[in-house]
């Protein structure tokens, strides 16, 4: 079993939290994992990405090669497409619909959606709205993880356990809110 995932977004949108939860769940399942992150200058409102690799075999490279990525999980629609060359023919693109506009030349939303919908395997959802309906827009990243969970080769319950580990010190209410966000994302994918 191996799964190569590219997490995408804009600096500050919480992709490293998604990475930490998937990584924790992978380790709890006895899998190997490697996860390359971006720190430094790009974090200032620029595009950020994280290469996350999980496998039951040894993992060598910290980077995913072009055309090898099994899943692009993005919290921003344009950023999802930035990594399209990495996506394998059978790969899934799972992205938040809500744009993060901090540049003057942000593309037309319809053109973006068309490009995304042209892929054979994609899931497009308004995770901001779903998180808002649950009472905390900041849980948007966990909604996205929930939406992706259906296609991740790790049991769903492991993500709940990992959420408790990662958010536990912030209190039971935060954990519960995130578990609900995870479930809401999952429910969207299973519709």
């Amino acid at each position: 079993m191996k799964q190569d995932i590219i997490l995408a977004g804009v600096g500050g949108q919480g992709i490293l939290t998604i990475a930490a939860i998937i990584g924790q769940a992978a380790i709890d399942n006895g899998l190997n994992m490697k996860q390359a992150e971006v720190h430094g200058m790009s974090q200032r409102g620029g595009d950020v990405q994280s290469h996350l690799r999980i496998s039951d075999m040894d993992i060598h490279s910290d980077l995913i090669a072009e055309g090898d990525c099994d899943m692009i999980l993005s919290v921003e629609p344009m950023e999802a497409l930035r990594y399209k060359p990495y996506l394998s023919v059978e790969g899934w693109l799972i992205t938040n619909k809500k744009p993060f506009i901090n540049i003057p030349n942000y593309p037309d939303m319809e053109a973006l959606e068309n490009e995304i919908r042209s892929l054979p395997r994609q899931v497009l959802l308004d995770a901001d709205q779903i998180a808002k309906d649950l009472g905390n827009v900041r849980a948007m990243n966990i909604v996205m993880l929930g939406a992706a969970s259906k296609y991740l080769k790790i049991p769903y319950e492991s993500f709940e356990v990992a959420l408790e580990k990662v958010f536990g010190r912030k209190g039971a209410a935060v954990v519960e809110m995130n578990i609900n966000a995870l479930a809401a994302g999952k429910a969207f994918s299973e519709k």
Binding site: V10, R44, E66, L81, P85, P107
Partner: peptide, 16 residues
Amino acid sequence: IIIPDVVAGRPPALCV
């Protein structure tokens, strides 16, 4: 690496 045309560059910037 050919990024789809529709994707614009998003360079780092000073925070709001």
